[in-house]
Design a protein around this nucleic acid. Sequence first.
DNA 1: TAGCACCTTAGGACTACTAGAAGGCAACTC
DNA 2: GAGTTGCCTTCTAGTAGTCCTAAGGTGCTA
Lengths: 139, 139
Amino acid sequence: MSYSIQEVAKKMNVSTYSIRYYHDHGMLPFVKRDANNNRVFEDSDLEWLHLIICLRSTGMPVERIQHYLDLVQEGESTVPERYEMMKAQQSRTLEEINDLQNHLKTINVKVDHYADVLINHKSDDFVPSNVRDAEEVQP
Amino acid sequence: MSYSIQEVAKKMNVSTYSIRYYHDHGMLPFVKRDANNNRVFEDSDLEWLHLIICLRSTGMPVERIQHYLDLVQEGESTVPERYEMMKAQQSRTLEEINDLQNHLKTINVKVDHYADVLINHKSDDFVPSNVRDAEEVQP
DNA sequence: TAGCACCTTAGGACTACTAGAAGGCAACTC
DNA sequence: GAGTTGCCTTCTAGTAGTCCTAAGGTGCTA
């Protein structure tokens, strides 16, 4: 199966700009061109792209992704380094999920508070004020 | 309690650059200055900053945060809009956590695969190759 | 009084996109 | 055959948010 850049963008839920950016920066080394110079994506390119999206979304910088993809193409001797990279990314992602879950708790408190104010017509505890001395200036 | 910018940076685990950026862009409206024009942070400023960090980390753009903080200072009449903003952020964050958990699965597969190659001296299934026809070119 | 550590502002560099301009090519209608 | 649509292309410029550097002020301390 072959796909145009737009089909890939829709399928993978990323912008065509991003795909071109990844391609232009050597992260999609096997993408071909048709007679009109348009990019032609095969299923195997989608797998590469999927991994790129996965690594980017979990915070790996483009430069590191480029390096990882170079290692893949270099062959089996680079497996130890690739293993370390993926382990690092694994713990980074676990940390990120944990952070987000903590931030979510803060947001939940806000949502519950505002719901309370709206439904029970309670007053907003967090009295806004431009006067610092009021001591109730809380976001 | 009062804190210098560096103390705040350490306490909240952000750079002094970011704190200055937030302050310069009106997101820390109650931060005072001392006789030498240095920023002086009170505990209430830390609460504001904590919320800013929470919203930024969950992907809210600075412009939206500014708007939210304006609403807080405007008073109780803005509670409905603030409620909607926090609900939107809540679902955005849940989605983000879900995405990350899916990406983590992909990374786990890589880690397990590489561990298998290393420990059991198996060969790397994903044979790298510059020749597309090999059909095994997988990241 | 010299050195150090902190602070300040102004401005530039950086990443990873994002968007717009200007144009090519194919398929369609009029 | 001309025009329109719609996709693609490259090139260039802009953006957000963060980081860094330069140049300078202040205060402590030995």
